[in-house]
Design a protein around this nucleic acid. Structure first.
Length: 415
RNA sequence: GCGAGCGUAGCUCAGUAGGUUAGAGCACCUGGUUGUGGUCCAGGGGGUCGUCGGUUCAAAUCCGAUCGCUCGCCCCA
């Protein structure tokens, strides 16, 4: 193999795959607009502090999994590992608290220094939304309904499950954390080595351990829902009622958690069983403390992000390629007319592949290779009579059409 | 950071008790058709067998190292 390889965890998107990615992004953006979201594009890198502040000291993430570097001016910069922090920063930088509630959509590449595996790359792409400034669960309902519609419009409605949980407010979560740790201590001997470490650093994460022994312990663990205080429970009820009214199906998963402290109340994931270990296709939650934590005015928020690569894998086959019209001059004398014809058709919105060389046989072969549906053949014969020969490349049939009617004929969608 | 599997043509892969010029299908090119593709027939180009080193008269095949890929663990903002 050549030494000219892409960096580990990065890939070239060749036209076929790029088209599927684009489809995923376009569907998400179209649906987001239906819900009244506008697009925001934040920089691909930020001061490292933007991410470090939101993540706190959470070990691995900051120290090992970010692309951090010093620029020539000596500033520490980091390629964005996700977009919520960037949106929050932009919210504060631009004084957007004047225009709440804010509904924002984004798309683009993200970067995490991780070991690549199925559905996980170092440069990957996400689409996502953030809804800022609404305290009520109505916001959560709309954001989740939006997610469900994106997936449904991608044809994945039957292949993903919405899992939902409530983390409660800070008070509820703190109470649960104590209850859980106390319980886990009593079963300490049965826990895996990983989970013993989690018990100290991030006890809620024990709940979604993949280790079988851990799962047995977790199955008998006290539930987060039993620790919810009244207002947290009321919030959850509002959310569930709203989802039912909106017609969004869900499954409660009491073991669905988030690692970071700024999350509260709603946590949700759409998962698929068709992607191996990386089954989460879209994930989100409520983050009422995030903006405060970054130094902005207290502002509630909820949002989600979805992995474009994973969605594109699931939506395989959905994005049909264009079927251009192949315009083929026969003989050098016909080339100017072929160019004129191609330009006229393109001007009418018809995709045209105009070959660059070769005889009729070669050009028809090329027409086939680019998946053309129709070939427009122009030779001396035709030009003398002011017509073109149209060949239906699927049926193998041919008709003649007057040059003056050609663009109308093809633009009408009869190609 | 940890574990397992795998690197042979552009792609998918055959090929090991080590033995001459390393194969197939698909793709590509040429011709059969000097104005007819996708079917068919004939022919052709393309590989330092990931790389480096070792064992041997002889290495794609055995050994070591290295690089890369894949899947999983950790982590998942």
């Amino acid at each position: 193999m050549s030494r000219l390889q892409p960096v580990r965890g990065t890939r070239d998107l060749l036209p076929d795959e790029a088209r599927r990615h684009r489809l995923v992004e376009d569907v998400a953006w179209r649906v987001a607009r239906l819900y009244g979201f506008g697009e925001i594009a934040t920089p691909i890198f930020e001061f490292t502090e933007v991410f470090a502040r939101t993540l706190g000291d959470t070990s691995d993430i900051v120290t090992k999994e970010m692309y951090t570097f010093n620029d020539r001016g000596g500033d520490s910069l980091t390629l964005r590992p996700e977009n919520t922090a960037g949106v929050a920063r932009a919210f504060i930088s631009n004084g957007l608290q004047q225009s709440l509630p804010l509904k924002l959509f984004y798309r683009g590449p993200m970067f995490r220094y991780e070991r690549p595996q199925k559905g996980r790359l170092r440069q990957f792409h996400q689409v996502g939304v953030e809804l800022l400034g609404v305290e009520a669960a109505r916001a959560d309902v709309e954001v989740i309904a939006l997610a469900a519609q994106v997936l449904a419009d991608l044809g994945l409605g039957g292949r993903v499950t919405l899992e939902l949980n409530s983390l409660g407010d800070a008070e509820s979560r703190a109470a649960y954390r104590e209850t859980l740790v106390a319980y886990l201590e009593t079963r300490h001997a049965e826990l895996s080595e990983d989970s013993r470490a989690r018990l100290r650093r991030n006890p809620l994460r024990v709940l979604d351990s993949k280790d079988e022994g851990d799962r047995a312990v977790v199955a008998e663990a006290p539930l987060l829902s039993d620790s919810l205080n009244d207002s947290s429970r009321a919030f959850l009820d509002d959310l569930l009622n709203g989802l039912e009214t909106a017609g969004v199906a869900y499954v409660l998963n009491p073991r669905l958690v988030r690692g970071l402290d700024y999350y509260c109340h709603t946590a949700f994931e759409f998962t698929s069983t068709d992607l191996g270990a990386q089954g989460t296709v879209l994930a989100g939650g409520r983050y009422d403390e995030l903006i405060t934590q970054m130094g902005g005015p207290p502002t509630p928020g909820i949002g989600w992000a979805a992995g474009v690569e994973r969605l594109a894998m699931l939506a395989e086959g959905l994005a049909d390629a264009d079927r251009p019209v192949a315009v083929i001059p026969v003989g050098a004398a016909a080339e100017p007319e072929a160019l004129r014809t191609a330009q006229r058709l393109r001007g009418r919105g018809v995709a045209v592949d105009l070959g660059y060389s070769g005889n009729l046989k070669k050009r028809l072969k090329r027409a086939n290779a680019v998946n053309a549906g129709t070939a427009v053949m122009l030779g001396e014969d035709e030009l003398a009579r002011g017509v073109a020969t149209l060949r239906d490349l699927d049926a193998g049939t041919q008709t003649e059409v007057a040059l003056t009617e050609l663009d109308t004929f093809l633009a009408a969608g009869r190609a």
